[in-house]
Design a protein around this nucleic acid. Structure first.
Lengths: 340, 340
DNA sequence: CTGTTAGCGCCTTCAC
DNA sequence: GTGAAGGCGCTAACAG
């Protein structure tokens, strides 16, 4: 029994013998309407099965209760967690979420932004497909001109000027390196052929660069003779596994392996397994938690970041900016924690 | 530099010396406009940074390019996978996704449906907070009356009449039970005190009931003397872990433990660990894959379901129903596969 | 407290 | 191929 025509406030108005505006007010600003009138209207709305038309309202008021979330990967549990936080907090402020999974495709990202612009999104949380400096999406001028509040999350666009919530990647790199310094590369254990294999993201990715810089900073002067080998990748599992597999064949097992995110670390572990090397034959350490392994008494030390917190922060920042569009953009840095 | 006012087709029209309608046509039905005119208009649109107003369009045409997805848990990787599939396919058909994570809260679910109605969603994929027969959400009449296409995914509302994509739970239960019959409860191994512990969802959950029924069917007459103990839960990890922990204290280690979903199985394994019992001291088997454990040579047999496929099916079904609102509702069943 | 008027941006209908 | 008028449903602004 499909509704032939949607019931509008005009229908309600006719039904109770009032005009549209009174109905509109009764439903939206109850205090502006006499109690009795209001009750009759509410009653009628219920009976007729009235559903407000968000398009009409949006058109009239030219603002929306929509927040756009644009992300490159729903797969990544870290992103799933952030999205969960965003969704939960957005709801509390009566915003609905429009979610776009760009799947790493810049064109889809651009279309997502356009759709959000056309829906007059109140704000956008953006985690772009790439954080390399030469990625200059074509939507940037449009997005800027729109005046919509934007907060970048984790990944950022080079020089975009938008606010951001990012991880303390430098610290994470340093922290891991310092850990390795005492546990894998202590002076008294040097053999002269100590290698640290870092399995990274794209070579020019900001996040990768920062993490690498942290490593180099921490090791500088402290670890003579320790060679750092870097394998570039794209933050996903399969390429990391393959690259590490090849490395193992050519160079044997390094003293330690550092995976720059969860999927990379898992990929490295997979390569070890496939090479018939037990995961505890070398020191594997990563960024991001490997889920549920504690249940099997497997501990891979890692720097964990609170994705839920990061997501919540991003939404807070977004709301702040929506309230005050003039406010200067801010970058919030979330620091992780080493778990051993 | 916030946009003072959005640029509309009227602005473009003025800019090129035409009227609104011509601009509208040039942008939406290019074939109805002379080539030269169209090019001038497209050029102007680009220059002025024109963004169509989805609200105005939606208001006029009273249909939208929005598909609503309402789910109880983004956490569950199985749902994340389904959402990924939905999102990817929706995009291909030029639909945007409005995502609602109800977090298990019936009230939020109701609000989500109302929001989708008010946005004139073209269709809704619904995985409600509960699939128990006494859950009768208040939005049901409104949703029915709206005539919007609805496809339920995994969880279903009792007697709702909407289409659905569900798992073959009966089969999954049977399959696991048959496996246990040969691997844990083979005749020649009976000790007279053989117990199968099933860690389930809510007692009246359809999914739980079906899976249990499958177990009982398969075991009927085949496993005299095998006692089935059932622990009820809510499909999440912590309660399952606690319940299994208590059980182990009271009854010792059963011959086999069957977790009715991923999180439950992990909870059971956690309880074993906390009780100081190695995970391979008993036969643990589950529904849903335990991710990444193969990397550590841990194999917990399980029935896996293709969440991506299920999500894709749900969207296909939804599109079919949007095309033909008269079509009878259908229930699609997705069968899993035993992985040992 | 309630009503009148008008218009948000777009597109359908009918004319030219 | 192009234009003029009107209305989708709702709500600001100004009456009364």
């Amino acid at each position: 029994m499909a509704a032939s025509r949607n019931v509008t406030i005009a229908d309600i108005a006719r039904h109770v013998g009032m005009t549209n505006i009174t109905v509109s007010r009764a439903l939206n600003r109850p205090e502006m309407v006499r109690q009795a009138t209001r009750e009759r209207i509410e009653q009628a709305a219920l009976e007729l099965g009235y559903v407000p038309n968000a398009f009409a309202r949006g058109l009239k008021r030219s603002d929306s209760r929509l927040i756009g979330v644009v992300t490159a990967s729903l797969d990544n549990p870290f992103y799933a967690e952030m999205i969960k936080a965003i969704s939960r907090h957005a709801k509390q402020h009566d915003y609905a979420i429009m979610l776009f999974d760009t799947d790493g495709d810049a064109h889809l990202e651009s279309m997502a932004i356009d759709t959000l612009l056309s829906y007059q999104a109140a704000g956008i949380i953006l985690s772009p497909v790439s954080d390399e400096p030469d990625y200059r999406p074509d939507y940037l001028p449009r997005l800027r001109a729109s005046g919509i509040a934007v907060v970048q999350l984790d990944r950022t666009l080079h020089d975009s000027g938008f606010s951001a919530v990012v991880l303390d990647n430098l610290w994470a790199g340093e922290r891991v390196a310092r850990y390795l310094l005492t546990h894998a590369f202590a002076c008294d254990r040097r053999t002269g052929d100590d290698r640290l294999l870092v399995v990274a993201g794209p070579e020019h990715s900001r996040i990768t660069c920062e993490r690498l810089e942290g490593i180099r900073d921490a090791l500088a002067g402290q670890a003579d003779g320790v060679a750092i080998d870097v394998l570039w990748g794209d933050y996903t599992l399969a390429p990391a596994a393959e690259a590490v597999g090849d490395y193992l064949k050519c160079h044997g097992v390094p003293r330690a392996i550092f995976g720059l995110n969860q999927l990379i670390t898992l990929g490295a572990l997979k390569a070890l397994q496939q090479a018939g090397i037990a995961w505890d034959q070398t020191r594997v350490i990563g960024i991001d938690r490997l889920p549920y392994l504690d249940i099997f008494d497997i501990t891979v030390p890692c720097v964990v970041h609170d994705g839920y917190h990061a997501g919540a922060q991003a939404l807070e920042q977004l709301l702040a900016q929506m309230r005050d569009p003039q406010a200067a953009s801010r970058t919030l840095t979330v620091r992780g924690e080493l778990l051993t």
